[in-house]
Design a protein around this nucleic acid. Structure first.
Lengths: 345, 345
DNA sequence: TTGTAGGCGTTATCAT
DNA sequence: ATGATAACGCCTACAA
């Protein structure tokens, strides 16, 4: 079954080998591949043939060294088992590859230190640009970017300071809409299951938005009614269980993201609490699953694939010397489905 | 003419600048960073200071050119919105970064042509090794790898031919176990919602395993009872609806992966079909959500994070000159939860 | 322990 | 249209 391959040969063919095989100079071979218009058609063809014959594959490092461009974009992301990040990564990768760029990906576990290290590694690898998530980063990270004078895009969050290039949504505003929706349904007793707010400006903004909307109608949110939980369905279940045990009496739960909301929903189902009759639940992100559940999950649609794609497009445009708006806000509409309903009488 | 180029303002400091600032030669500066043991401690420190002072970041391309190593590993994956791939990617990335390697990620939509192109791009970028998913690839892909004599790992699938390095599970065998479990519960009328089998050996093996187990007990699987569906909860719902409409009468559904199974489950819930009393449902992969549902989803545990981590470890070991077993099989046990039960009388 | 110099594979700037 | 050759930034024998 195992076939032996006679062809051994030490190293891979280089452009010089191609040139020799085609009977042209190194420079001509290079041009034939990069700027065919500058080379006689016939010569071009000879070079191409030689390439195929030898199985020549360009040496990116050498090219990067000479051109000072790696055709590579770095992305530093939280764990991709959050589907929103997976989607964005995929869309970004797709966008980049269409333009001949490749994605260099680093992931971290919401740890600013690790994030800084990873970013450094990417810069060392010579990325032409960088995609980051959110605004919360080690100060050293921004310094590093500054010094490297590397174009980068902040995703998900918006820098209202107008300094960073960014493409994202207003988490605060969307969260206000969620709370208002529930208030309009007559709810007065709320609980919140927030994502972990440390090192996460999105989670903080979402929590702040909810607080603010409630406060503006004179409704407080005691700390016993607020829980932070790591992103995960299981954590959502546990959080709701905890709230029910420690501070019952609420009729609506605002969740920091969909997995938490789905967890809360499953916990209700397991306990026989009917949603939305006895309890309303709202999520955030509009994960695929949200629409498939019965009842469907009321949530905020954050178009994560679009964010990834836009970040890629913007970066590519900037690398091509075009100008782009510094800040690109994407709408995040409230999607009302079945898990929210009138407050029980 | 010889011109002294003072460090340009925009340009980043190079090792030569560090050396000058530290008052040592280029070679010493290089060694101080790479092999500090070969350099006097005091000198080392001077170099380090210079590095910090100047904010020096090594130029990876130059290093790669000189050492013929990029400290970069490429991975070619299907869309990461399938959580199993997201988990594997994260684990892989984590494993690599611990060893100073970075992950170069390419994703494709189950298209062999695109996969080939992406792989080529990674090789051009100078990856030191590659991680692939499954055995189904464009023949040109294997040729490319051969010529580049690049170490690579096939993940998820096992090459029983013993040719490729691989780390994965036996999808066929696990699928046999699923079918046997249902047979043991008394089921005789089956339906299958398979993943799309084109360009996907895992989906084919899973389907084949189920067929085989049923056949070995004299039970056939008419084509009207088999449906292929793209990976997605929505597709699972639709597939079950289709089966119910076209070929009712089955008491158990074997699904090609968990999202499909969850879709089937949700469809049942929406129609008032009780699971497992009226219908048993089994999945494959053991996604996080599977355990959180009530009833929990009976499925096969495929440790995707472990696969990613192992692939990384194996590749790193090989790059370090160690030998590893060509084939590493990971157990994929059946996890019996609540969605499967005795066949209705 | 430290320095000198050649080379890694490609592009780009000159000539021709 | 094509060719010679100097960068590009770093590593690493080989010398000192």
């Amino acid at each position: 079954m195992l076939k032996l391959r006679p062809m051994a040969l030490g190293s891979n063919p280089k452009l010089a080998d191609v040139a020799r095989a085609a009977g042209v100079s190194l420079a001509t071979a290079s041009r034939a591949l990069a700027q065919p218009d500058l080379v006689r058609a016939k010569t071009c063809e000879r070079v191409r043939d030689a390439v195929n014959m030898l199985g020549y594959v360009p040496h990116g490092a050498a090219r990067a060294l000479a051109t000072r461009r790696s055709k590579t974009i770095g992305a530093v992301f939280p764990p991709l088992d959050n589907p929103i990040f997976a989607k964005a990564t995929h869309a970004l990768s797709r966008e980049l590859s269409q333009a001949g760029y490749t994605l260099l990906l680093a992931t971290h576990d919401y740890d600013p230190g690790a994030e800084l290290l990873a970013t450094r590694a990417l810069i060392e690898r010579g990325v032409d640009g960088l995609v980051l998530v959110g605004m919360d980063h080690d100060p050293g990270l921004y310094r590093l970017l500054e010094r490297a004078s590397l174009p980068y895009e902040i995703t998900w969050s918006l820098d209202h300071g107008g300094y960073h290039h960014c493409v994202g949504v207003s988490h605060r505003l969307a969260s206000v809409h969620v709370a208002q929706h529930l208030l309009d349904l007559g709810h007065r007793e709320f609980a919140v299951i927030a994502g972990e707010t440390a090192h996460n400006d999105r989670a903080r903004d979402r929590l702040a938005g909810a607080r603010e909307a409630l406060a503006s109608r004179g409704i407080g949110l005691p700390s016993s009614r607020v829980r932070e939980a790591p992103f995960a369905v299981a954590a959502g279940k546990a959080a709701l269980a905890g709230l029910l045990a420690d501070a019952p009496g609420f009729t609506a739960v605002i969740c920091g993201n969909d997995p938490l909301a789905i967890g809360a929903l499953l916990e209700c189902r397991a306990r026989g609490i009917t949603v939305p009759d006895q309890l309303s639940i709202a999520g955030f992100d509009d994960v695929d699953l949200a629409a498939e559940l019965t009842p469907g999950l009321t949530t905020v649609r954050v178009p994560s694939a679009e964010i990834g794609a836009r970040a890629g497009k913007r970066l590519l445009a900037r690398l091509a010397g075009k100008r782009v708006r510094r800040m690109e806000e994407i709408k995040a509409p409230l999607i009302v489905r079945g898990t929210t309903g009138p407050a029980p009488a």
